[in-house]
């Protein structure tokens, strides 16, 4: 069974962060929320593995994201 991968995998995190900020630029709160929700839906479908997604939700809802 596949598990959520949590080791660093992106070559250029700063660039991704900048892309996300750019996508949100000029949006009001509601539009920003919709954008984030769409991103999650698109990526969830790309991942396509219910168990991985469950682990991701569990990780995101941990009270303190202080690492595993």
């Amino acid at each position: 069974m596949k598990h959520l991968r949590t080791e660093p995998r992106l070559a250029d995190p700063d660039a991704l962060y900048a892309l996300l900020m750019e996508a949100h630029r000029g949006l009001d709160d509601a539009a920003s929320r919709r954008l984030d929700a769409k991103l999650v839906l698109i990526l969830a479908n790309h991942i396509g593995d219910a168990e991985v997604l469950r682990e991701a939700i569990a990780l995101a809802t941990q009270r303190r994201n202080s690492g595993a």
């Binding site: 509601a30 919709r34 929700a37 769409k38």
Partner: peptide, 11 residues
């Protein structure tokens, strides 16, 4: 919840 609902509908 509203944002998620509308995100689904837009997509």
């Amino acid at each position: 919840a509203l944002a998620w609902r509308d995100a689904v509908l837009e997509l």
